[in-house]
């Protein structure tokens, strides 16, 4: 009665509702008014043009990091290394953007390309190790995250600056800033990056569904042995999947480097864009359109949450709990499926 396709839509929706419900229960049990809490979140995300601009700004890298995770997942790979690939992409974009002089448009494109290449290289290493030596990509990508973080800090301190904690701003020719959009949204940090994100979502859909390469990648993802038997080169497809995935992640970093912040800075911890990308891809069922919708949801939650302490007294961190629970529920889709099937049987 329920097809797999239906469940791909039902499970995420049920999970989101359960997650929000759990958030409401937590608010009630700590003496907050959940209606006021979620109203504050709504206002904080869409209340006026400024908040709307900030929400779009947050959604932009989420789309790209979600695409990165989703793309690898379609080829049967779990890329936890998106976080590290975001960091190196950010660094590469800012390096090109701040250290070179180029004509407008060209400069931005070169900087974006550099970010994608840097992320791609960071994805290449685990891809190669998986393809040639069968090393599990999860552990390698986790380790690559830390290497990216510390290496990037050291490059910012030692190469891009003279011991400073942040680089100079990127040149105007390399910036994604959209002054008229900023003015329109009361000087939020919105930038042209959302166009890049949407184009990339289309690219992923096209690549996976309309090209031979995409067919091979999906085949390898669903059954590597059958693909091998059918004459596909599994190893090569794994490497390609990781490189493209890393490229998306690198672009997510470029959104921050060329758009939101316009610089790169030394950081003691992760950006979390990559880790949140796992949640986005999971909720979006690893499809391009799903990723866009999930990114909008999580971007809204994150930005809306910033308004919750002032308007409803609820700590921002509530949203992190809600997001974690949504991931858990989606991952436990088996049980949601089971409950649905049971009820539909009993209904007969």
């Amino acid at each position: 009665m329920f097809s797999n396709r239906t469940f791909n839509i039902v499970v995420p929706i049920v999970s989101v509702l359960l997650g929000l419900l759990a958030g409401a229960v937590i608010m009630v049990s700590f003496g907050y008014n959940p209606v006021a809490g979620y109203a504050a979140m709504w206002n904080g995300a869409f209340g006026d043009a400024y908040f709307l601009g900030e929400t779009v700004r947050q959604v932009t890298p989420y789309i790209l990091s979600g695409l990165a995770v989703a793309f690898a997942m379609r080829a049967g790979l779990l890329n936890i290394g998106v976080e590290g690939q975001v960091i190196v992409g950010w660094l590469a974009a800012v390096w090109i953007g701040s250290s070179f002089g180029m004509p407008p448009v060209v400069h931005v494109l070169v900087a974006l390309l550099a970010a994608a290449v840097a992320g791609g290289i960071w994805g290449f290493v685990p891809g190669l190790l998986k393809a040639k030596l069968g090393v599990h990509e999860v552990i390698v990508t986790i380790m690559m995250n830390y290497i990216a973080l510390y290496l990037s800090n050291s490059v910012i301190r030692g190469v891009l600056t003279d011991g400073e904690d942040r680089t100079g701003n990127v040149a105007e020719t390399a910036s994604l800033a959209a002054p008229w959009l900023r003015e329109l949204t009361f000087y939020s940090r919105i930038h042209y990056g959302f166009i890049v994100a949407l184009v990339m979502a289309f690219t992923m859909w096209f690549l996976l569904n309309k090209t031979t390469r995409g067919f091979e990648l999906r085949a390898v993802g669903s059954n590597p042995f059958a693909s091998e038997y059918a004459g596909m080169k599994v190893g090569r497809n794994i490497i390609i999947a990781m490189v493209i995935s890393g490229g998306f992640a690198g672009l997510a970093g470029a959104m921050e480097g060329l758009g939101t912040f316009q610089y790169a800075s030394v950081s003691s911890g992760f950006t979390n864009i990559g880790f949140d990308g796992i949640a986005v891809a999971l909720l979006g069922a690893n499809t391009a359109i799903g990723v866009i919708l999930a990114a909008i949801l999580f971007g809204t939650l994150k930005i809306g949450a910033l308004n919750m302490p002032t308007e409803a007294g609820v700590p921002t961190e509530l949203v992190d709990i809600v997001i974690a629970l949504i991931i858990l529920f989606v991952a436990s889709g088996y049980i949601i499926r089971w409950v649905f099937l049971k009820f539909s049987k009993e209904g007969k």
């Binding site: 779990l78 936890i80 880790f275 796992i278 949640a279 999971l282 992190d320 709990i321 997001i323 974690a324 629970l325 991931i327 858990l328 991952a331 436990s332």
Partner: peptide, 9 residues
């Protein structure tokens, strides 16, 4: 994925 969720949670 469950482990990642544990870290967030």
């Amino acid at each position: 994925v469950s482990g990642v969720a544990i870290n967030f949670l």
